[in-house]
Amino acid sequence: MRRSGRLIEVRELHEIAEFESVYALFDDIWHFSPGEPPITVELMRALSHTGGYVAGAFDGDRLAGGSAGFLAAGGALHSHVTGVVAGRGIGLALKLHQRRWALERGLERITWTYDPLVRRNAHFNLAKLGARPREYLPAFYGVMEDAINAGDESDRLMAEWRLLDPRVVALARGEPRVTPVPADAVVALADDGGRPVPGPVDAGTVLVAVPADIEGLRRADPGTAKAWRHAVRDVLGGLMAEGRAVTGFSGRTYYVVERT
Results as ranks from 00 to 15, higher is better:
residue 89 G to L: 11
residue 108 E to F: 10
residue 98 Q to T: 05
residue 109 R to D: 13
residue 88 R to H: 13
residue 100 R to G: 12
residue 111 T to V: 05
residue 106 G to V: 01
residue 105 R to W: 04
residue 123 H to S: 12
residue 114 Y to S: 11
residue 90 I to S: 04
residue 94 L to V: 09
residue 84 V to W: 03
residue 110 I to V: 15
residue 121 N to F: 04
residue 97 H to I: 02
residue 126 L to I: 12
residue 127 A to D: 13
residue 90 I to T: 13
residue 86 A to K: 15
residue 108 E to C: 10
residue 127 A to P: 10
residue 118 V to L: 15
residue 108 E to D: 14
residue 100 R to W: 07
residue 106 G to M: 04
residue 105 R to F: 06
residue 82 T to H: 09
residue 88 R to I: 10
residue 86 A to F: 11
residue 104 E to C: 07
residue 121 N to G: 11
residue 111 T to Q: 11
residue 87 G to W: 01
residue 99 R to C: 06
residue 94 L to R: 03
residue 93 A to T: 02
residue 108 E to P: 06
residue 83 G to V: 01
residue 102 A to D: 06
residue 101 W to K: 10
residue 117 L to S: 09
residue 88 R to C: 11
residue 121 N to Y: 07
residue 93 A to W: 00
residue 114 Y to T: 05
residue 109 R to A: 09
residue 94 L to Y: 03
residue 115 D to G: 05
residue 99 R to I: 01
residue 124 F to G: 06
residue 88 R to F: 14
residue 90 I to K: 02
residue 85 V to Q: 14
residue 95 K to C: 07
residue 125 N to D: 10
residue 122 A to Y: 02
residue 114 Y to R: 04
residue 98 Q to N: 13
residue 104 E to V: 03
residue 116 P to R: 00
residue 85 V to L: 15
residue 127 A to V: 07
residue 96 L to I: 01
residue 109 R to T: 13
residue 121 N to E: 08
residue 112 W to A: 00
residue 101 W to G: 08
residue 116 P to T: 00
residue 97 H to Y: 13
residue 82 T to F: 07
residue 92 L to W: 06
residue 108 E to K: 12
residue 107 L to P: 08
residue 86 A to C: 11
residue 126 L to H: 01
residue 120 R to P: 08
residue 102 A to I: 04
residue 100 R to T: 13
residue 87 G to P: 13
residue 83 G to D: 02
residue 86 A to H: 13
residue 89 G to C: 12
residue 83 G to W: 00
residue 121 N to H: 09
residue 87 G to E: 07
residue 87 G to N: 08
residue 114 Y to K: 04
residue 101 W to H: 07
residue 92 L to T: 14
residue 84 V to T: 15
residue 113 T to N: 09
residue 117 L to I: 07
residue 107 L to R: 03
residue 125 N to Y: 05
residue 92 L to V: 08
residue 121 N to Q: 12
residue 88 R to M: 12
residue 85 V to M: 14
residue 122 A to K: 00
residue 88 R to D: 13
residue 99 R to W: 05
residue 113 T to L: 05
residue 121 N to L: 14
residue 124 F to H: 06
residue 99 R to G: 06
residue 95 K to E: 05
residue 119 R to I: 04
